[in-house]
């Protein structure tokens, strides 16, 4: 994949967020566990927020990304790979979410190699860092909610 302008990159990122939002929405519809359902619904909202943020950057209302240098716990690497079932629990849902964020981060990192100019590279870096921050946040929630006594 190649990008010619920053606008294109941002458009792509917005599409990614929309995709993720649809994914969570689907899961929220299907799952039977009340907690997991509520969590996925929250995630839909989260992704909408990200989308809005990206759009704001695109229209120049916001400049740059946050999330540089978030301390990582690397929980994602340790935990297993759950798949979606109807009776999915909050725990598994969280793992899925943090994995998704990690995937997104890796994707942006990979795209960086194809970026032609510095501007683009910087934007992609920012996007990657943003996803990394989301991942860290998911891990934090996992740590606080699931591993309360560990």
């Amino acid at each position: 994949m190649e990008f010619n302008s920053i606008q294109e990159v941002l458009d792509f990122a917005v599409r990614q967020e929309q995709k993720a939002g649809r994914f969570y929405g689907l899961m929220a519809e299907k799952s039977t566990d009340v907690v997991a359902r509520k969590f996925f619904r929250e995630m839909v909202g989260e992704e909408r927020k990200h989308e809005a943020k990206l759009k704001a950057i695109k229209s120049g209302k916001l400049s740059g990304f946050s999330g540089q240098g978030t301390p990582q716990m690397n929980l994602t690497e340790v935990l297993g790979e759950p798949v979606f079932r109807e009776d999915i629990t909050l725990q598994e849902g969280l793992i899925i979410a943090m994995r998704a964020e990690k995937d997104a981060y890796e994707m942006y990192e990979g795209l960086k190699a194809f970026a032609r100019d510095e501007e683009l590279k910087k934007i992609l870096e920012g996007l990657a860092a943003e996803e990394l921050e989301h991942k860290a946040r998911m891990e934090s929630i996992y740590d606080q909610v699931v591993q309360r006594e560990n």
Binding site: L90, V146, Q147, N150
Partner: peptide
Amino acid sequence: AIGQKGEFEWMPEEVA
């Protein structure tokens, strides 16, 4: 023994 959670299966959907 890493943590516990509540369960809400017994609770009516609308309440939960």
